[in-house]
Simulated assay, not measured.
Amino acid sequence: MAGDGKYAILHVPDFGDGMSSYLRIGATPDDDYTWRDETDGNRITTTRGDKIEIIGGTYSMKVFGRREFKASSEVEDGRIKQGGITFQGQSEIEFVQGPRGQRRIRETTVKGEVHTTYHGDAVEYHYGSKLVSRTGHPDTPTPIEDYPAVMTENPTIVDRTWAKSISSYTGSAKLPVPSIHEETWAETMVSKTHVTTVTDETTVKGPSKETMKAGSISSTTTVEQTISDTTKAKTIKSKTEADKIISETRADTEDDKYGDADSYTQGDSKTVVDGIETTINLGVVNEVVLGAMVEATLGGEATVSVGGTVNATLGPDVSISVTASFEASVGPSIRMGPAKQKLYLDRSLAAPVRTNIAAVHLLV
């Protein structure tokens, strides 16, 4: 002991140069540490019971582990800073100002390769003004073999899930999310879904807009039973622009329309019916031809009108019947126009007959 300070030195035998170990309590004139515990060799500390350490100042621990990097832990002002190979040199907790002006703690950690396994329940709660998750970087070169000096690399992501059930909720009816923005950029996308039943419901209070641009679109739907599609709207507008449209339907079709129907075709129109065609009009039929009209019937034709029939032709009208033609009118029929050419074919005689209609013929 010495009179200039309260300290004690416990000497142990030297095991070699620079290998002295000692325990000193108290400060010396050239050393401000009041407690120094130093061991140049190995050390084992055993505590057979509880251990409590109370540190009133800064705590720092550094472990080199006989490597070029060091693992360290430092506690200052209630904040913990850690460094090591798993943290890639930094883990820092500091005080920051929260969104409402309050003082809060922020932890910043950078880690290397980490493998984590959970056995049991895992629950996570996130509160705060922001939650940001990012994987990779848009300016990171890849693959890493071509850029070995770059410390980061965009990873390959594999996500596999096996579960009893999966439930995902975003927002609620009481507190919906004000805005959701999603973008996907990919070279190739493959999506497969195998389920027993599917229920998909979308409710849009305002307008809905959907746009697709593609080089080509191929869609295949195979249903064993029935496809039921119901659309309710005040007005439905459909616009298709293409060089050619090919539509093929192999099924018995039934089309019911309730309301006025207006159809406009700019160009030639051809309809071929390989079978029996029956048209029933429960009302007035107005047929206007602004040009030439050619009708050819290769078989029996029967026309029955149970009401007034008005035919207006502003141009030549040619009607050819190779077989018998039968026309019956229960109501009045009015025909007005210039001279009309009629051609009748007989077994031995083919003579054109010209009839001039100078007035109005009322046929009953």
Rank of each mutant, 00 (worst) to 15 (best):
residue 4 D to M: 07
residue 309 T to M: 09
residue 199 T to M: 04
residue 309 T to G: 08
residue 314 L to C: 12
residue 260 D to P: 03
residue 271 T to C: 05
residue 355 T to I: 08
residue 144 I to H: 11
residue 259 G to E: 02
residue 331 G to P: 01
residue 119 H to V: 04
residue 26 G to F: 01
residue 301 E to W: 02
residue 32 D to L: 12
residue 15 F to V: 14
residue 168 S to F: 08
residue 99 P to Y: 04
residue 205 K to D: 13
residue 290 L to T: 14
residue 44 I to D: 14
residue 51 K to H: 12
residue 281 N to T: 08
residue 364 V to T: 13
residue 326 F to A: 06
residue 64 F to Q: 02
residue 70 K to F: 09
residue 298 L to W: 10
residue 184 T to D: 07
residue 244 K to M: 08
residue 150 V to H: 12
residue 14 D to P: 06
residue 192 K to M: 05
residue 324 A to E: 10
residue 104 R to I: 11
residue 221 T to Q: 12
residue 172 S to H: 00
residue 249 T to V: 13
residue 320 I to H: 09
residue 144 I to M: 00
residue 102 Q to H: 14
residue 52 I to L: 15
residue 287 E to S: 15
residue 55 I to A: 14
residue 22 Y to N: 08
residue 213 K to Y: 02
residue 251 A to N: 15
residue 145 E to K: 11
residue 205 K to G: 13
residue 35 W to Y: 03
residue 338 P to R: 04
residue 309 T to V: 13
residue 266 Q to N: 15
residue 214 A to S: 09
residue 199 T to K: 10
residue 107 E to R: 08
residue 249 T to S: 06
residue 289 V to M: 14
residue 112 G to T: 00
residue 307 G to L: 00
residue 38 E to W: 06
residue 293 M to Y: 14
residue 287 E to A: 14
residue 211 T to P: 01
residue 8 A to I: 07
residue 49 G to Y: 00
residue 301 E to I: 04
residue 99 P to W: 00
residue 192 K to D: 11
residue 64 F to A: 05
residue 286 N to I: 09
residue 41 G to F: 02
residue 201 E to D: 11
residue 157 I to P: 03
residue 144 I to W: 03
residue 290 L to N: 15
residue 89 G to P: 01
residue 236 I to E: 09
residue 14 D to L: 11
residue 312 A to P: 09
residue 75 V to F: 05
residue 155 P to M: 01
residue 245 I to Q: 09
residue 331 G to R: 05
residue 361 H to N: 14
residue 217 I to F: 04
residue 345 L to M: 13
residue 358 A to E: 11
residue 83 G to N: 08
residue 5 G to P: 03
residue 187 E to W: 02
residue 76 E to W: 00
residue 149 A to M: 11
residue 146 D to Y: 06
residue 190 V to F: 04
residue 67 R to C: 03
residue 347 R to A: 10
residue 219 S to Q: 09
residue 315 G to K: 10
residue 319 S to Q: 11
residue 344 Y to V: 11
residue 296 A to W: 04
residue 283 G to E: 02
residue 94 E to L: 03
residue 182 E to C: 05
residue 157 I to L: 09
residue 156 T to A: 11
residue 58 T to V: 15
residue 225 Q to K: 15
residue 9 I to K: 08
residue 221 T to M: 10
residue 239 K to N: 04
residue 196 T to Y: 01
residue 197 T to Y: 05
residue 357 I to G: 07
residue 269 S to C: 01
residue 195 V to T: 12
residue 146 D to F: 04
residue 96 V to S: 02
residue 43 R to S: 07
residue 152 T to K: 15
residue 76 E to T: 11
residue 187 E to P: 00
residue 218 S to G: 11
residue 233 A to F: 00
residue 170 T to G: 12
residue 202 T to P: 00
residue 196 T to D: 12
residue 328 A to R: 05
residue 71 A to D: 14
residue 5 G to E: 07
residue 135 T to R: 05
residue 42 N to L: 09
residue 218 S to L: 03
residue 206 G to C: 09
residue 15 F to K: 13
residue 263 S to M: 12
residue 105 I to P: 06
residue 175 L to H: 13
residue 239 K to P: 01
residue 343 L to P: 06
residue 38 E to S: 06
residue 302 A to M: 10
residue 164 K to T: 09
residue 105 I to F: 04
residue 244 K to F: 03
residue 287 E to M: 13
residue 129 S to Y: 15
residue 120 G to F: 00
residue 300 G to S: 14
residue 254 E to Q: 13
residue 9 I to P: 02
residue 342 K to H: 12
residue 192 K to H: 05
residue 188 T to L: 01
residue 178 P to T: 09
residue 2 A to L: 11
residue 29 P to H: 04
residue 262 D to N: 07
